[in-house]
Simulated assay, not measured.
Amino acid sequence: MSSDIEDRRGQRVSTGKVAGGGGLIGVVIAIAVALFGGGGGADLGAVLEQLDVAAPAAPADQNVQAQAPDTVSEQDEFVSFVLDDVQNFWDRSFADAGRTYDRSTLVLYERGTATAGCGYGEAAIGPFYCPADQKVYIDLSFFDDLATRFGAPGDFAQAYVIAHEIAHHVQNVLGISDQVRAQQQGASQSEANDLSIRLELQADCLSGVWAHSAYGRDALSPGDLEEGLGAASAVGDDAIQSSAGAPVNPETWTHGSSEQRISWFNTGFETGDVNACDTFSGNL
């Protein structure tokens, strides 16, 4: 498997304190919404960053002891391949811009796990990125939910999830998340939500930029792209509210509508340019 994967599956819970402790970094998202809650010579410094989706606070007196599985499944190999491909793409892009990309680590876990600075991550919230330890956390059972509950099956739907979370890491490395969080301080709830949406849509766009590169290298087929678009649509705030039987209320959105998520992923895919991912200028 990739050297950027930390496998915590099979870990057992034991008594003790969670490493990293308490407070969340970024916007706290309701569980139903938090299920997405991460061109070569482009000026990466111009890219504005999305807010990071972090895990909920840790239960008291919880710690973990790893007992990783001995076998590597076909899904493990696919996740490893996609992770390396996405991070190698950002390695090249940063280098072309005269910058250094600090690679993220993908943590595979089951049910729940401790983070260093973002509390205790649980599978119920879906994949998330913790800016404090610069790690992406995924319980692979989420991909089953993506296919069955949200109607977005397929390998590239899974690749989209990984690319989206790594996009949050790219944004964190650039330091723009801190700038946006600063703007949220003292902002109204409506303004804070709008900033969160713009940040999330930018992560979708950056995912599309990677997909553009993958398509150009024949690592992606038109059918794969449809799977990615289906995943982007499935995790729109309106789609999630509808699937939960709740009224569709744009005032509560933090990630954007299905139409917006598809549109911005397409923007990244069609242009292959990170500078096209400025979701902060004008209307969405």
Rank of each mutant, 00 (worst) to 15 (best):
I5R: 03
E6F: 08
D7L: 06
D7I: 03
R8M: 12
R9Q: 11
R12W: 10
T15N: 11
T15G: 14
V18M: 11
G20L: 07
G21F: 07
G23E: 09
I25G: 07
G26A: 00
D43M: 02
A46E: 10
V47T: 14
D52W: 04
V53G: 15
A55G: 14
P56E: 04
Q62G: 03
N63A: 15
A66S: 11
D70L: 14
D76K: 08
D76R: 12
F78K: 08
V79S: 04
V82E: 07
V86Q: 06
V86W: 05
N88H: 11
F89N: 02
F89S: 10
W90R: 05
W90K: 04
F94L: 01
A95G: 02
D96P: 02
D102C: 01
L106S: 05
A116C: 00
G121F: 02
Y129P: 02
Y129Q: 01
I138K: 06
S141M: 08
F143V: 10
D144A: 10
L146Q: 11
R149C: 00
G151N: 15
V161K: 09
I162P: 07
E165K: 05
V170N: 07
I176R: 10
Q185I: 13
E191A: 14
L195I: 07
R198S: 03
Q202K: 09
Q202N: 14
V209K: 01
Y215S: 12
R217H: 12
R217W: 02
A219P: 03
S221P: 01
S221T: 15
D224A: 11
E227T: 04
A231Q: 11
S233T: 12
V235M: 13
G236A: 09
D237W: 05
I240T: 13
Q241C: 09
S243P: 00
A246E: 14
P247Y: 05
E251I: 00
R261M: 10
G268S: 03
V274E: 01
F280V: 05
L284Y: 08
